[in-house]
Design a binder for these strands. Structure first.
Length: 267
DNA sequence: TTGTGTTTTATTGCCTCC
DNA sequence: GGAGGCAATAAAACACAA
């Protein structure tokens, strides 16, 4: 058995580590080189590294006693063992950070995919709402027109306050039923076959109001209140306060208003 | 063989804790 | 104030393509 010394010249042949490894495995030349290198940096043997790795797995911090024991077992300076553990902790930390970064990135990608899907679905639903709203409007107008043709002269509006002079002239042909005191419902002049207050308003909620074309006299007041939205288009800010039914907070498709503010609404 | 990039060992300086 | 840890860095050792 070869008796070999560590860098400090101590005989290490009796320690467990050196008893464990066979000099023939690493070759005599290699061993000789290992033992007689000058003060140059020398790499630890694979066995030494293995041994250190095992110990690192058990505990990545090094108490003084353990450091001395390991140094003895490996035939190294305690300082070398300490340095190895220090560098090993640094490597572990780097790897750990890389893994954390990858995990976070995967998580982000997954969330982003979900978000993109929801955005697409939301756009689709908004388009659908628009189409259905227009259909409803056209249907409602058709019902009103048929009533119009059967009705006698409408008389003065009940509540003319909200209409401008010019509007009053135009609405003289619009029945009270449709627009009590004011009306902006125009007609076939528009390319779409009619003006859509919805688009002007930037709010589609009113499209889901109940069909008011056929209601009793007792319901007229409520109905007329609602129909005012068809005839008068206050500024959006006013609308929110004065007409809760139109307020943006009352119809935001389940999304909080602040979210909608940033959405690219098509109208 | 050599140039170059990567890995490993070791040092330095700063910080924290006892 | 000394011991030990950590980040930054130097430098040797190693791997590998051209």
């Amino acid at each position: 058995m070869v008796s070999f010394e560590d860098a400090s010249g101590a005989n290490v042949s009796k320690n467990p580590f050196f008893q464990a490894f066979d000099p023939h495995e690493i070759g005599e030349e290699e061993l000789d080189e290992y033992l007689h290198q000058p003060e140059k940096k020398r790499r630890l043997t694979t066995e030494q590294v293995h041994f250190l790795e095992k110990n690192f797995e058990l505990e990545n911090k090094l108490e003084p006693e353990r450091k001395i024991q390991l140094a003895k077992d490996l035939g190294l300076q305690p300082r070398q063992v300490a340095i190895w553990f220090q560098n090993r902790r640094a490597r572990w930390k780097t790897k750990h950070l890389e893994k954390e970064y990858e995990d976070l990135q995967a998580s982000y990608n997954s969330l982003k995919a979900d978000c993109d899907g929801l955005l697409k679905e939301n756009d689709k639903l908004k388009t659908e709402v628009l189409v259905l709203t227009d259909k409803l409007l056209i249907k409602a107008r058709g019902t009103q027109n048929s009533k119009l043709s059967n009705a006698s002269s409408p008389g003065p509006p009940e509540n003319p306050v909200a209409c401008s002079k010019g509007e009053e002239e135009r609405i003289s042909t619009v029945p009270e039923d449709v627009c009590p005191g004011k009306s902006e419902i125009s007609d076939s002049d528009s390319p779409n076959g009619g003006y859509s207050p919805l688009r002007e308003h930037g709010d589609s909620s009113y499209a889901f109001e109940p069909d008011l074309s056929d209601s009793s006299q007792d319901e007229d007041y409520t109905r007329n209140e609602n129909l005012q939205h068809l005839c008068v288009f206050p500024k959006l800010e006013e609308t929110r306060d004065d007409y809760p039914i139109l307020s943006t907070s009352s119809c935001h498709f389940g999304f909080p208003p602040e979210d909608q503010a940033s959405w690219p609404w098509p109208y």
